[in-house]
Every structure is written in structure tokens, then in C-alpha cells.
Simulated assay, not measured.
Amino acid sequence: PKRESKFQPNREPTFRVRGVPNDWDRNKLESFLAERDIAAAPVVQSLAKEFHGRSQAATVFFQNTCQLPLKISLPAYSGQFGEQRILTLDHDFIGITSLFTPPQQDHKVDIIAISGLGGHAFGSFKERDREHMWLRDALPHGMIDESDKHFARIMVYGYESSVPNSDSFQNLEDIATSLHSDLRTLSFDSSFKPIVLIAHSLGGLVAKQVLISLCMSKDKVNRSLKRAIYGIAFFGVPHDGMDISSLIPMAGDGPNRFLLESIGSTNSQVLSIQQREFSKALGGPGESEVVSFYETRLSPTALKDEGGRWSMSGKPAALVSKASATHCRPWEDGPEHICAINRTHSEMVKFSVEDPEYDKVLGRIRSLAQHAITARRSM
């Protein structure tokens, strides 16, 4: 008889735990959570100092359903002004979350990943039905210098971008404004580490919009932030639009329909203007660098079942064409800047352990990071 696999797909979400005291390690946090819900069997998978430095953020997987409250008081700890210290749990990952922070003396570059339309800051980059999340579990160890020291802080940025039943009427500029505000908080004494952005799908359009607004700003911090952003790795970013035909019925006449239509592949004026402005915003050759990855597999489209539930199980389609995904800057058209990923649109940012597709990505992101550091030294 055929042997059954012991692997059981994980359906429980990964939680983010914020407010972890700086003097706690993984074991301390794991014990603290287990004491309050031992049946949940928590496993702390990462613990990193937050960008503000006041506390740490963790990613935690509960092997069984978590019954913990979303806010847990730390009675033995109080803040700078005597306020109560609290651990907060969530699985939305809105805003900036640190996944890995190197020692301060080794920290040379910041890498920030931005998810796409209907995506999730953490889940979009996690292997489907498994726990491997390459930004957390692999990328930090690919960013080591000749002395075997980790030099990159790895973060993810999350924002609300669901398509069905959305009550949001935000547009590209609105989402970019939120990201812009959060990026400003990364400054230390009005200066920034060199920054490399990893952007999937809509996230790339958001990143471009941020660069455009920074380019037009006279504010000192904004100008410093603009100089800090050296490179972007675009994954399936629809510079010339994408196939939204199956998404429009999902949005219906909801307030987010305008956002969807603005990134469609049919004569999007929003994207045309953005592309023209972006070509001047990031900087020329030597000042900046862009790498574009494009999908080479058809993606399932949105389909509504008899119960009124939407799922990505419809007729396969090419959501973002190669031409759209690679229509960026004319001088970056060689194989070192354009690379195929043999995946669907959503799967192109999900990698497994020892994944050959990941090796392609790692090499190019590491190159961006190293060039960002070199460019900073020569400024």
C-alpha cells in the first residue's frame, strides 16, 4: 500500500508579537507564552530588535489554536515613564516588522519587502502550507560579509489591500503616503542606512510612487531618505498594467474598484504618468539599480463558488506579462537586471528550502545590497 506522508499542512497563521523586552531571548518569550497557553505549543521563529529600538518583535507559530489574548501585560516591566509594558499579538503585520536585525556595529544596509495586491506582509513570502519564509529564514544568512558577519536588517511592510468586501477607497498615492511615513521612522539622527526594496506586484507601484514623492520634496529627511534608497528588486510588478478581468467582479462596485482599474492593462493613465516620473526619480546609472523578475507560469484567476465565496481557482491566465514586468528603465535590459521566475504570479515570491529559483533571487539581491553599501561609501 502507498505510504501516507507524515506532513500535515499548516493552516494556523503566524503571529507577530510586539513589545518584547530587549533583554528577552527566544526561550524566555516562548516560556512566557507557553505558561499562559500551554496547549497552543508556541514556537518562536524569529526575534529581532524593532527599528525604534525600544523593544523587539517576534514571529511565533502556534502548533495548536492559540487562545491567548491579543494584549498581555508584563507586570515586572514598565516603560521609560512608568507606563505598563504590554505584549501585543496580531497576524495582520500592518506597518514595518523587523524579521532580522544584525548587531549594531555590523549593520550596513536595510532590506524592506513590500507585498502585493490582496497580499500579506508575511504570508505572501512564506512557502505555501509550510513554515519556511525566505526573508526570515534564508535571506539574513545570505547577507554576510567576508568576516562571516551579518550586515543586513530584514523587514517587511504590510498594508491593507484585500479585493473582496473591501471598504477602502485608497489609491496608489494613499498607500504610498503610509509607506513613506513609516520609512521616515528608520532614520537615526536624520540619516539612513542604505536601503534596498523588494517589491511584489502592487507593492512595486507603491514603491515607485514613494520615490516620486521623495524626488519632489525639499524636506531634509525626505532628501536623505531619497539618497538612501539605492535599489529595488521588482517581482511581477505591472509597470504597464496587469490582467484584472477576474478581479473586477470580485471588487464589484466597491470603493476599491478605482485602485484596481488604475493598474489594469488597458491604457492606464495613472501608470503611464507614474512610469514617466519614476524614470527621473530613482537616479541614473551608478546612482541606483533596478532588477526585474517576471513570472513564466499561468496563474489561477478569481472565481466565485455557489456559496458566494471567492477563491483563486478560475481559468489560468498570465496576470502580468513579461513586457509589463520588465518595462522599467531602458539601460537595465540585460540578464543581470531581468530574470525569469518559473512560477505563477503569487508563487514567484514563495521559495522552499534549497530552491533553485531562490538562488537566482539571492544572487541579485545580495548584489544590490553590496552595491548600495559601496555607493554610500563613495558619496
Rank of each mutant, 00 (worst) to 15 (best):
E287F: 07
S299N: 11
R297A: 07
R309T: 15
E332C: 04
C339H: 08
P285D: 01
E357G: 04
T326L: 08
E295K: 11
G307A: 10
L303P: 02
G334L: 14
S292I: 05
Y358I: 04
E354K: 13
G334I: 11
T296F: 03
I338N: 10
P300C: 02
G334H: 13
F293K: 00
D305W: 12
G308K: 03
K315Q: 14
E354F: 10
P316N: 02
A318L: 15
V353A: 08
P335M: 07
A302L: 09
S288I: 07
S299C: 11
A318V: 15
G286N: 00
E354N: 14
F351S: 02
L319H: 06
S299P: 01
H345K: 07
H345M: 03
E289F: 08
H337W: 07
I341A: 03
S313M: 10
C328I: 13
T326I: 14
A323Q: 15
T326A: 08
G307N: 14
A323W: 04
S346L: 03
E332V: 04
K315F: 09
E287K: 10
N342V: 04
P356D: 05
K304A: 06
A325M: 06
A340D: 11
S346F: 01
H327E: 13
R343Q: 11
S292R: 06
R297I: 07
E336V: 09
H327G: 15
S346N: 03
P285I: 09
P300N: 08
W331L: 13
W310T: 08
T344P: 05
S324T: 04
V320D: 02
R309S: 15
